[in-house]
């Protein structure tokens, strides 16, 4: 027993030494990075690509490289082509860093098939960080076809990338958005619900009119989360043909109903008001309160006050609160 404890003590002492060593190394590294950055900067300024390529095979120099300044006339394409093989064989952590650095230079890989294939093939990596960095790099390419290719591979490999990361990532794409939307729509049915949800959320946050296409999708969508996202789409993108369906959905599952009531906020007509008034007395708390919120938004104050005569305590409570909030906001 005592021997074991002695062994433990020895290992723990080693860890203390290791931690102290870490602090020391970190200090040294900070100084070294500055030195290495100067060296790399010199090579960049001299456009010495061969030497640069040799240096950047070491991760520490790659870190230094990411802090350097670049002039437009230096051709880094060949440099990254060479580094691709080196970093492909390194650990996932280093590979992820390489992609992070690479993504800072979209102009050099925009038409480089080798690099683009590398990014697509790593987009479905088991490492979320590598996958995300690859996608970030692909969002910077002008041709959106590569994003679709990556998405398709990820979908095929059942890559569990959070839909929010995907939709927020798509929003960073600065190329031909119409083409991207068209490609996403063409492939929509092939994606699983996670990717479909990401795509709809992306559509919801851009200013391209896809109401007609998405209305057809809404009518046929079976997945609950995706359908709710589609209903929300018609809140931000008014489409009169969708009104009837939204009204219909207020009588469906409560989550559809809540989303539909919120979407009806921007639709006019007696039928809308009638639906909202009916929803006001719904036994579901969420439906009732959302209906009150939308009614207070849509109706003039005197009509809202009229609503308080309703013989339903819960509906009255909901309207009173929304009235108070609207007064506070005013």
């Amino acid at each position: 027993m005592t021997t074991i404890i002695y062994i433990y003590i020895f290992i723990l002492l080693s860890m203390i030494v290791f931690n102290v060593f870490c602090v020391y190394i970190r200090k040294i590294n900070d100084c070294n990075i500055i030195k290495k950055q100067k060296k790399i900067q010199l090579l960049i300024d001299k456009k010495n690509i061969n030497r640069l390529g040799r240096k950047l095979k070491h991760t520490s120099y790659l870190i230094a490289f990411s802090y350097c300044e670049f002039k437009n006339d230096i051709k880094l394409t060949n440099l990254f082509d060479r580094l691709l093989n080196t970093y492909n064989k390194k650990s996932i952590i280093e590979k992820t860093y390489f992609v992070y650095v690479l993504s800072k230079f979209p102009e050099i890989y925009d038409n480089n098939n080798q690099i683009i294939n590398f990014l697509i093939n790593n987009s479905y990596s088991n490492s979320l960080y590598l996958s995300e960095n690859c996608l970030k790099a692909l969002y910077k390419i002008s041709n959106p076809i590569y994003i679709i290719k990556a998405f398709k591979k990820m979908n095929y490999k059942n890559c569990k990338h959070h839909y929010k990361l995907l939709s927020d990532g798509l929003l960073t794409y600065q190329g031909d958005k119409n083409k991207l939307c068209s490609l996403l729509l063409d492939n929509y049915k092939n994606f699983n619900s996670n990717y479909r949800l990401a795509i709809i959320n992306y559509f919801n946050r851009i200013d391209i009119d896809l109401t007609k296409e998405l209305f057809n999708i809404l009518l046929n969508e079976k997945d609950k989360e995706v359908k709710i996202a589609l209903i929300r789409y018609f809140r931000n993108h008014k489409y009169d043909f969708a009104k009837k369906e939204l009204i219909k959905l207020t009588k469906d599952d409560f989550e559809y109903a809540v989303a539909s009531i919120q979407s009806l906020k921007y639709y006019d007509g007696i039928d809308v008001i009638k639906t909202l008034k009916n929803s006001l007395t719904n036994s579901n708390w969420y439906i009732r309160n959302r209906a009150a919120e939308v009614l207070v938004f849509k109706l003039p104050k005197n009509e809202v006050i009229e609503l308080l005569k309703i013989d339903d305590k819960y509906a009255k409570d909901a309207i009173t609160y929304q009235l108070g909030m609207s007064d506070n906001n005013a």
């Binding site: 290992i11 931690n19 952590i93 280093e94 992820t96 960080y129 960095n133």
Partner: peptide
Amino acid sequence: FLSVTIGSSTLFTNRYKNKMENKI
């Protein structure tokens, strides 16, 4: 012993990952 060694090494790896942009 295991918790301290695993804990320390995990923290070290996490910091390294963070430095190497292995993060969301």
